[in-house]
Amino acid sequence: MSAAQTETMAMGKAINAALADSLEEDPSIILSGEDIGQLGGVFRVTDGLQDRFGKDRVLDSPLAESAIVGTAVGMTYAGLRPVVEIQFDGFIYPAFDQIVAQVAKLQYRTGGLHRMPITIRVPFGGHIGSVEHHSESPEAYFAHTAGLRVVTASSSQEAYSTLRAAIKSDDPVLFFEPKAKYWSKGEVDRTVVRDLETAAVLQSGRDVTLATYGPTVELAMGAAAAAADEGIEIEVIDLRSISPLDVDTVAASVRRTGRLVVAHESQAECGIGSELITSICETAFTSLEAAPERVTGYDIPYPPAAWEGEFLPGVDRLLDAVDRTLGRKNSRDFMRGGAAA
């Protein structure tokens, strides 16, 4: 690939480019969401698209999430491929019924006679210091539902290529965008094609596998760099797809390292980490040299943002979990009375 093919773009711009290129390429694509037109979205991710593609293809929808998704279902019967935006993670719940009971099930109910090419874009995650309902990570609800593909991205390139693939897919895809990374810049080659199922090994290492996705990938890379200073090699995996999980890639890594840490912002209970760890126990149990670890948001409602630094996984919590898998001194020693001294 020649250098001329890549452009430096913030993740938000890369998503904008993916939407624009898709709209350009396929006249059946239509965008709908609150404030996405005239304003260009509250994060400006859809900036300029209404001007360029017109008000009939980029809809400033009334304020009703259930209707945004429900009408997208109807549009698929009219032969369209809707790409809808939910303004923030915490506002997806009014649409939950349409997503879970309709979007997820109609291919199955019609025995494959109707396809559901809907993309639902959802800015998600914390670290933005915002008020309630603006920092949640609801991906596990959707991963739990058969019939939905759930993907995310950790860089401008991944965002561009994954969204392009999501829009091309005949399946419904929830695309979770790590909003805290919208302004992070990276190189984008628009010719790079991604599928919706495979994870990527971002950095290889022989001691511990650290698997994560979305906003936590950067932290994992930071943890790997810090661990390297102590002579510990962390293999960092960007899961990219949350449903399905690329168990093969993670299992192959665990067979080399014998240790697994899974991290995400969403809570632990019945979460993506639980699912991945179970799958690894099922497929690579004999390779495990230590109990797998989860580093997640705690099992509480997203707290007031002043505490989000404590609530969300950080580099130190990741390293602490890595230490546990290696049997090194770690925070749990402080729980067993006396060890703290």
Binding site: Y298, E310, D316, R317, D320, N330, S331, R332, D333, F334, M335, A340
Partner: peptide, 8 residues
């Protein structure tokens, strides 16, 4: 766990 982590 949180308290132990914070203490450590």
């Amino acid at each position: 766990e949180y308290k132990a982590f914070a203490a450590s």
